[in-house]
């Protein structure tokens, strides 16, 4: 098996502005989770946890964000200059989910500061994605793989 050069020409790409729009909404939700008092902080954290779970579980094309993007945003934009593979943003949703699960559990245990730090880290990633289309979770991926065991070549 030569996995050397991946000529994966994923013809069925997604509009890269979709995940970017979703990230912008995520920024708003995370900021709300950080600003609102309890019990609203917990409620908003739970909502974002579910949203990330949908994105990671079903894929970024099947989130409420994607639906909004298709209905409201995409019709107002021109055609995208390039399509994007949906796998990276989906993976990033999974990374976001991990942080939000920590935040949710911490909120439930009344460890507010821990919850807020976890939300803050997720917010960094969401801002990078929304403003720069930069996928922090994806970058961490190779670093994690590097640390892991090597499948003997």
């Amino acid at each position: 098996m030569s996995e050397t050069s991946r000529q994966t020409s994923t013809q069925t790409g997604i509009d890269p502005r979709g995940p970017q729009f979703a990230a912008a909404l995520t920024v708003v939700v995370l900021v709300l989770a950080l600003l609102l008092p309890q019990p609203w902080a917990l409620v908003v954290t739970a909502i974002q946890t579910v949203l990330f779970a949908i994105g990671a579980g079903l894929g970024v094309q099947r989130t409420p964000h994607a639906w909004l993007f298709k209905k409201l945003v995409r019709p107002r934009l021109g055609a995208p200059s390039e399509l994007e593979d949906p796998a990276p943003p989906r993976f990033a949703q999974g990374v976001g989910l991990a942080f939000l699960v920590v935040a949710l559990v911490a909120h439930l245990l009344d460890a507010t500061l821990v919850a807020q730090i976890a939300l803050g880290l997720a917010l960094v990633a969401a801002v990078l994605n929304a403003v720069f289309r930069f996928c922090l979770g994806c970058e961490i991926y190779l670093l994690i793989r590097r640390l892991g065991p090597t499948p003997s070549a």
Binding site: A33, L123, A125, F132
Partner: peptide, 23 residues
């Protein structure tokens, strides 16, 4: 400003700084 608000501000500033550096 609550602690949450401070964390939000720090997170946004850090993200913008890192993003600009990367750009």
């Amino acid at each position: 400003m609550s602690t949450g608000a401070w964390i939000a501000v720090v997170a946004i500033v850090a993200a913008l700084a890192f993003g600009l550096f990367r750009l």
